[in-house]
Design a protein around this nucleic acid. Structure first.
Length: 628
RNA sequence: GGAGCGGUAGUUAAGACGGUUAUAACGCCGGCCUGUCACGCCGGAGGCCGAGGGUUCGAGUCCCUUCCGCUCCGCCA
């Protein structure tokens, strides 16, 4: 036996210790919890209580032993004292992090000078009279506490431990409160909560579907819903009148910090309404959510911006209005410029940043790299000094152009101006995203600001380069505005939809529209999208038919619950407000889904794989350690 | 499909231009400790440097491949 093995024998292994400690485990018996761990205060002085929870920290002084007992509501310090309860004190040395215990004891004020102002229960402590070890625990792979900055792969692989952390527990609780506020508001307004199918029919438009093979109908597939859109409209046809659902939705597309393959939508539809009624209902809903979940009163109504105004001033269709930088169209100012890039571009826009002249060359280089993400070739800039313009492009600009830019942009010494020239899509994306980045970088965004706004008058169609045709901007059931009604098939680029998005601090949190409710209009829409009547009937026949049996005018909206919860909890990802989220590769590190299935399961479904995948290609994300 | 960042004790990180035995903090184990609260003090264990291949006398470090996590572009009606 080597020296190192010799040493290891001297050191007790985790398994040995746990085994030894397991002898102390007792059944709950007739013990009943009297309070949670965040409940007690000086008002409970002298009370006999029974607490149950997890060991957060143990401070063993040899004599006195302090344990911070944690449950989802907070921490309470419990004291094992050899003088007051020698029996109880005797075995308390076995306690370790995350052990589960029940204590009976007496509440008492902490001695003068020993209060802990950082703890909600810091005025008191509970002297243990009797206790039971309910369970032991292995040492957790990362500390169960807010300040632990464990990697996300670990957190996801051990999600049940991650969720014990106060921050995550509070996220779950706030999400619950949001949903309760939604339900209570909509219930008061006489909405019916109706569930729609999870196993449904694949639709050709929109995102990629998740498919489920049918055993009873081999060769056929269900699709998981991308949203309950058609069902909620059919509920309007059913006379349900006012519907909502906290609906799980599925889209098989790539993930982002704010996008998961399955997510939750607060889905709402109303009959006999116009845009304004839906929007004011939605504003009231948000106000209720903020009031009930955050104790914040939102000013109503929310400001509105047309899509054109949003794109013009902010470059994006979800402007962050917490700070006031705006884009300006300066195409005319530089139309005849000696700077060919400007003179020949279909669109030139500028972003003036007051006091931005302090940006260093390095910072400007980083910003240049940043806009290249959006297809920009580079980033032109001018620093405005008292006596001169400092800029790589200054020499190209005539006196007249300088005067025009100064007037148009209101330039002042100390400013920096960024320019982008080219196709409108690229120009807006580059400068719009640059604007947001500068807002963050230069600390222009106030804390605790909740800037809601509506973006309205969206285009009905957008051109898809990939498909070489116009596709629905929102979805193919969106009604066209009266003004575009006649021209929607001839001038698709300029048709406007009766659609609206709710935006919060630069995030799209909801979107909806007034829907098409006559078969004639629905056929016109499919025609404009390039569907023949036959193919429209083949793919949406049941839906068009339903429109033929007395469909009321209707419209609705859907909120991204995960995004709302993310913003309200100040989280940087919706993963932090979803109990068991997927990784960027859409896997679950906790359960190891997706996974291969048995040959028998495939046979029953009438499926055969083209290639046999290697069973579970090796992972090293902490799974191996877990799989014992 | 593409771009970028990361992967080193249980955890979080450090490791100049390739050079002895790979550091630190926390955690863990043992001992001491009656007012701590991220307790303190003393001692100790703990590593296939994500995986595979290559270059080299020598690789955590350089090269190639690959896996995993994250951010973003595309995509997401």
């Amino acid at each position: 036996m080597s020296d190192s093995n010799q040493m290891m024998d001297d050191q007790k292994s985790q398994a040995d210790i746990q085994k030894e400690h397991a002898r102390y485990i007792k059944p709950l018996g007739d013990w009943k919890r009297s309070h949670n761990c965040g409940a007690l205060s000086l008002a409970d002085d002298g009370r006999e209580v029974c607490l149950m929870g997890w060991v957060q920290y143990r401070r063993d002084h040899g004599g006195l032993i302090f344990v911070d007992l944690r449950d989802r509501d907070g921490l309470t310090q419990v004291v094992f004292s050899p003088e007051i309860a020698p029996e109880a004190h005797r075995d308390a040395h076995v306690l370790r992090s995350e052990y589960v215990l029940a204590i009976r004891g007496r509440v008492r004020p902490r001695p003068e000078g020993m209060r802990n102002p950082n703890l909600a229960t810091g005025e008191i402590e509970v002297v243990v009279l009797d206790w039971k070890l309910l369970n032991t625990a292995k040492t957790p792979p990362f500390p169960v506490e807010d300040r632990s900055d464990a990697g996300e792969n670990l957190r996801l692989a051990w999600r049940y431990l991650d969720l014990r952390r106060p921050r995550m527990a509070n996220n779950l609780r706030l999400r619950h409160r949001i949903v309760q506020a939604v339900r209570s508001y909509l219930n008061e307004l006489d909405f019916l909560e109706v569930e729609t199918p999870i196993l449904t029919k694949s639709t050709p438009e929109g995102a990629r579907d998740f498919l489920v093979p049918s055993r009873l109908n081999q060769g056929q597939f269900y699709a998981l819903p991308q949203s309950p859109q058609q069902f909620k409209q059919m509920l309007m046809m059913s006379g349900v009148d006012r519907y909502y659902q906290v609906a799980r939705c599925f889209r098989d597309e790539d993930l982002r910090a704010d996008r998961q393959p399955e997510f939750t939508q607060v889905d709402i539809e109303m009959s006999f309404v116009d845009e304004d009624q839906v929007m004011s209902m939605a504003e009231g809903l948000m106000a209720r959510v903020f009031h009930d979940a955050m104790n914040i009163d939102l000013p109503l109504p929310f400001p509105r911006l047309t899509w054109e105004e949003a794109m013009r001033d902010y470059g994006v269709d979800k402007p962050d209005t917490r700070f006031d930088l705006r884009l300006r169209d300066v195409t005319a100012c530089v139309a005849g410029s000696g700077f060919k890039l400007f003179a020949s571009a279909p669109l030139v826009k500028a972003l003036r940043v007051p006091q931005g002249g302090t940006l260093s060359r390095k910072e400007i280089d980083d910003l240049t790299e940043f806009v290249k993400i959006y297809g920009a070739q580079g980033l032109a800039w001018i620093k405005i000094h008292e006596s001169e313009w400092q800029s790589p492009i200054a020499k190209f600009l005539s006196e007249g152009e300088r005067a025009a830019l100064t007037r148009e942009l209101g330039l002042e010494p100390g400013d920096i101006v960024f320019f982008q020239a080219g196709e409108p899509g690229m120009v807006n994306a580059a400068l719009g995203n640059l604007r947001v980045r500068l807002g963050q970088q230069m600390n222009l965004i106030p804390e605790n600001a909740w800037n809601f706004l509506w973006v309205t008058d969206f285009p009905l169609f957008e051109y898809s380069e990939e498909e070489q045709r116009y596709v629905a901007c929102h979805h193919p059931f969106t009604a066209v505005q009266e003004a575009s009604r006649e021209t929607m098939t001839s001038d698709r680029a300029n048709a406007r939809a009766r659609a609206y998005d709710m935006v919060l601090n630069g995030n799209e949190v909801g979107g909806g529209s007034i829907r098409i409710h006559t078969p004639e209009d629905q056929y016109r829409m499919f025609e404009a999208l390039g569907f023949s009547d036959e193919s429209a009937r083949a793919q949406f026949g049941y839906f068009i038919q339903a429109l033929e049996y007395g469909t009321p005018p209707h419209g609705g909206i859907a909120f991204g619950l995960d995004r709302v919860a993310m913003l309200l909890t100040g989280s940087s990802s919706i993963r932090d407000v979803i109990a068991f989220p997927k990784t960027q590769k859409a896997t679950c590190l906790l359960t190891d889904a997706p996974d291969t299935v048995s040959a028998r399961q495939l046979r029953e479904l009438g499926l055969r794989l083209r290639e046999t995948p290697a069973a579970n290609p090796g992972t090293d994300s902490g799974q191996e350690a877990k799989t014992e």
